[in-house]
């Protein structure tokens, strides 16, 4: 069996905010279609990894590549230079992100949010984009909200629209940044069910930061435990949740599950 090309490669990545090092010499790979969940205490650098992949932050050391192409850098005549806007936009088209606070555009309707990327970036016709939007809204169970404004939706509905918006770009990689943290408890289950469904029916590579341990356990193929900007444990969920090797992982899980 041949080993597939990794979808995501972090190679010696370091990220600093001022003098504060949030990621130390971080290296890992994610295979295509793999679901990886990042857990760990807040401030451990999990969200930073997603933001680096979305090019919302810049790496200080090391390289990141996605689908075999450098994301943070570009190859210019054999030497690596920091990527320019045009290049990173090209690579980043393959990556979607769903945010904790949804980040829907309030100046557009639900339809507008869903067709913006496909028409403006992917160059789809309005008709094609509308069809895609309608299909996706059906998938997330919000077909009747197509002409609503984001502000008229509940948090759970907004987040489902945001997921549909990310899917409309047909991403290879989907980044989920604490997507249920801002939701009222009774709305969390619906969003998680939708994500589980996507995990089963698509071959998207998921990278996910969450505090929902039950979801992490049955959604992920692999869980990475972060602390202080380093991966301290990287294992299958059954392994990590039932028999964690590391003391720090044990105490973290204890604290999260008790609460």
């Amino acid at each position: 069996m041949s080993v597939p090309e990794p979808m995501i490669v972090f190679d010696g990545v370091e990220k600093r905010f001022g003098s504060n090092v949030v990621l130390h010499d971080l290296s890992f790979t994610v295979s295509p279609g793999e679901h990886v969940t990042l857990i760990g205490p807040s401030g451990s650098g999990k969200t930073t990894i997603l933001r680096l992949l979305m090019t919302l932050e810049k790496v200080d050391e090391g390289t990141i590549s996605v689908g075999g192409r450098y994301l943070s850098h570009q190859d210019k005549g054999g030497t690596l230079v920091p990527a320019d806007e045009r290049y990173s936009r090209e690579v980043r088209k393959r990556i979607g992100m769903v945010f904790q606070q949804f980040n829907l555009f309030p100046n557009m309707t639900v339809r507008g949010n869903l067709i913006e990327g496909p028409t403006r970036v992917l160059g789809l016709s309005r008709d094609e984009a509308n069809t895609r939007a309608a299909d996706l809204l059906e998938l997330v169970g919000l077909s009747d909200k197509i002409d609503a404004h984001p502000t008229q939706l509940s948090g759970g509905q907004q987040q489902r629209v945001a997921i549909a918006r990310a899917l409309a770009m047909h991403p290879d990689v989907l980044l989920l940044d604490e997507v249920t943290s801002a939701l009222d408890p009774e709305l969390v289950a619906g969003v998680l069910a939708l994500l589980r469904d996507l995990g089963e029916t698509t071959d998207i590579t998921f990278l996910c930061v969450t505090h929902e341990m039950g979801f992490a356990r049955d959604f992920s193929h692999r869980v990475m435990m972060f602390d202080g900007g380093r991966v301290i444990e990287d294992a299958a969920p059954e392994q990590l949740f039932t028999a964690p090797e590391h003391e720090r992982t044990k105490s973290f899980l204890q604290a999260v599950l008790d609460h």
Binding site: L56, E85, F99, R165
Partner: peptide
């Protein structure tokens, strides 16, 4: 967050400004 949402959709800087 609105800039970030627009970046996540791969909108160009001009599109981000004009559309979002």
């Amino acid at each position: 967050a609105q800039y970030e949402g627009a970046i996540a959709l791969s909108l160009s800087p001009a599109q981000r400004m004009r559309r979002v």
